[in-house]
Amino acid sequence: MSETERWQAAEQLALALAEGGLQRMPARALAVFLFTGDETVTMGEIADRLGVSAGSVSGAVKALLSVGLIERLPAPGSRREHYRLRDDAWSTLFSAQNTVVGVMLKAADTGIAATASGDPAHERLTRMRDFYRFLLGELPGLLRRWEEQHPPR
């Protein structure tokens, strides 16, 4: 695969991530982390690769740091901060989404309390709550099995 094809594939991935709900610039920055051949990258390198301003990359990097996908690394002798994709990025992200599951669970409970038994909305909200309770109960075991099969490098 040529370098051009490699980065076209990165942009296609970023587009798919954006269509899936990730903001455009964090999606593009994440694609850089996934497709780079380098161990670490700087914000300037991301900006250069994407052809965007350093300011737009700064927000994307902060977003990726906040959800645990990337990490900041010490770079002795360098005036720039270096970042890399975490080895446990995907399980970290999935774990962080437990918060989302908790929010959905609470929203369902609030809806159930506001509707009467037998009401179709009550039934739908009960099913929603039951699904999220199930999911929340299954996530720890799934992540444990993942880590057993794919120990960090």
Rank of each mutant, 00 (worst) to 15 (best):
S95Y: 05
A114P: 08
G137S: 11
G59F: 09
E11W: 05
P140N: 07
A63Q: 07
L65N: 02
F33T: 11
I46Y: 01
I46K: 01
Q149K: 14
F35P: 04
T36P: 04
D48Y: 06
E147Q: 15
S2R: 05
A96G: 13
E138L: 15
R80F: 06
L85W: 06
K106P: 01
K106E: 15
D130N: 13
A9W: 08
S58R: 11
L85I: 08
A75Q: 05
F131G: 05
G137W: 06
V100T: 14
D87H: 09
A54F: 13
V100W: 12
R124G: 01
I46S: 00
T36E: 05
L105I: 02
D109P: 00
T110V: 09
R144Q: 13
T126H: 02
L105H: 12
T42Q: 12
A27F: 04
R145P: 01
W90Y: 15
S2I: 01
S56N: 14
E11M: 15
F134N: 07
E39M: 11
E71A: 09
R153Y: 06
S91A: 05
S58V: 03
W146Y: 15
E71V: 08
L135K: 00
S53W: 05
A75P: 00
A47C: 02
L30T: 04
R28D: 10
A116S: 13
D119V: 05
S95W: 08
Q149W: 08
L34G: 01
D109C: 00
S53H: 08
R79Y: 07
H122D: 02
W146K: 12
D119T: 03
L22Y: 09
E138C: 09
R24H: 06
A121K: 07
P74W: 04
R153I: 11
V61D: 07
S66K: 14
A18Y: 13
S66P: 09
Q12N: 14
A89L: 07
E5C: 00
G141I: 02
G102L: 04
L125D: 02
G37L: 10
E81K: 12
G44K: 13
R72C: 10
L34M: 07
T110R: 06
L50Y: 04
V67A: 03
E138V: 14
E39G: 07
R153A: 15
P152E: 09
E148D: 11
A31R: 09
F134S: 12
E45S: 07
P120M: 03
T99C: 00
R153E: 14
A75Y: 04
D109E: 15
